[in-house]
Design a binder for these strands. Structure first.
Lengths: 274, 274
DNA sequence: ACACGATATCCATATACCGGATATAGGGAG
DNA sequence: CTCCCTATATCCGGTATATGGATATCGTGT
């Protein structure tokens, strides 16, 4: 390392290096609209941008097909080209590739939705989703991402994250999606401990009122949690204790099979600290 | 309209208005890497960018999680955040939403893959894919996009596109994916006419050697083709003429049901020209 | 019909970007 | 093991380019 001339001496006036500001902003705009599609002015407010600047950015992005605008309402949302690019992420995704056969096996004939999710930026992001035929569970397709403290899928991934990350996460603002969403940091800490102890998570009604879910962690060769398998069902299904037990069994079997396919080996945890 | 002062008088030296160049480029880089993931220098060459410029762009995008880089090989590929943003496209997609139940119904118990695709920028882009359980057909998941002249899904959408678009498309370079890919503009023109006449398309081995597919158009209220339903199966399945006939029937039924859900009404085509 | 909020466009200026040059790392051949 | 060559990383000044306040138009609700 060439020891950076003289630390921070750079001509750039005031300390920080503001690189590719335009690009950064454009992507922030995209991400903002992915989460809050809507009118230009709301985005300008939400992002703290001057109207003129935002307008230019929006126009460019729309022209390129990265955003689309409903000409009636002037509402902006993500455009087809972003989907085109985004899907390329899956094409190179080792975990997903390994998991796919097992997920399909689990979904075969099941009366619940099967998902594979990973954690990105404090959210549980869906990589694969096999809907139960018959009834449709809303928001269980692609495109809906939930905070980590809501739903079993997020909680599993949070439970196995770095302790420092957990603390930081729970110290932040914890959104409440339904009246049943747990937002007490202390209680959540305990829930996470329970999850680690039993090896899976279960929640009901904390993401959507009439559904519940079970999730188990997927480990890689180096025993890190890289994803979670999640079964989502209408809530009534959890009334039946024996049905639930069967689900848990299948869940753990599936998650474990995927972990093994990724090079994880069951071996006692203790050996890790040997 | 304020009649633009004096057309093109603008101080900007030479006619064209070069807006948000950096942003444009960044997105081009992303799209390039979505299609050709790989080393920085290849992208620089492919895009005709100076190394320094590209490097800055890549660094920024990687830092933001829009690209990811394998530290071993220094190869770049699309990052998780692009998937995160891209999926938002599906969340607001009216056609997909209407189609989903019918697609699931069609996939129920089928021994072939069911897809919904739309056209974007000269490519057939997959919006929904329900894999056949059992055997895996590679490249039938998300993330693989094929030119319009390859595969039944592209051909259907091309067949119903504006005549001018068809001519322009067929005049361009037609990639050959397998030895069986048709690349003769004249022959393709005839194939498209046949497709319009019979209402669906069929191809074998022109995308991947050992698969074949059937596709039918999905119309919206105003009789435009907005998507296509596509059934993909291993090639041997098409040996059985009666099985194929059944597939065609289900395909047309499905595509039609979706069209109707979108507000399309069967009515004779002739009334359109009345 | 009016008014107000939202969207579109203009322009001078400062600034953030471009790209040639230079420095480091990596890795293959001899 | 050493050399060389290619790929990656960083620097820096001039200048093209983005910024955002101001102004003009649109369009929607009352």
């Amino acid at each position: 390392m060439p020891e950076r001339k003289a630390a921070g001496r750079g001509k750039t006036r005031s300390g920080a290096a503001p690189a590719l500001k335009g690009v950064r902003r454009a992507l922030e705009v995209l991400e903002y609209l992915a989460v809050h599609p809507g009118r230009a002015i709301d985005a300008a407010e939400g992002l703290g941008l001057s109207w003129a600047t935002l307008h230019r950015t929006l126009s460019q992005l729309e022209q390129g097909g990265f955003l689309q605008r409903d000409p009636e309402s002037n509402r902006y949302s993500i455009g087809p080209r972003m989907w085109f690019i985004g899907t390329a992420y899956l094409a190179n995704h080792a975990v997903l590739e390994a998991a796919q056969p097992y997920l399909e096996m689990a979904a075969e004939g099941a009366d619940f939705t099967v998902q594979l999710v990973e954690q990105a930026d404090g959210l549980a992001v869906t990589l694969y989703s096999h809907l139960t035929s018959g009834e449709i569970i809303t928001k269980s397709t692609y495109g809906y991402h939930f905070p980590l403290h809501c739903g079993s899928k997020g909680q599993v991934m949070l439970a196995y994250a770095e302790p420092a990350f957990i603390d930081a996460y729970l110290a932040g603002h914890l959104e409440r999606l339904t009246p049943e969403t747990m937002t007490e940091p202390e209680v959540l800490h305990e829930q996470l401990a329970t999850i680690r102890a039993q090896g899976f998570a279960k929640t009901e009604g904390d993401v959507q009122r009439f559904t519940g879910s079970l999730s188990a962690p997927v480990f890689n060769r180096s025993r890190q949690v890289v994803a979670a398998v999640c079964f989502i069902a209408r809530r009534s299904l959890f009334r039946d204790a024996s049905a639930e037990e069967e689900m848990v069994e299948l869940l753990l079997k599936t998650a474990q099979a995927i972990s093994i396919a990724l090079g994880w080996r069951p071996g006692d945890l203790s050996e890790e600290y040997s």
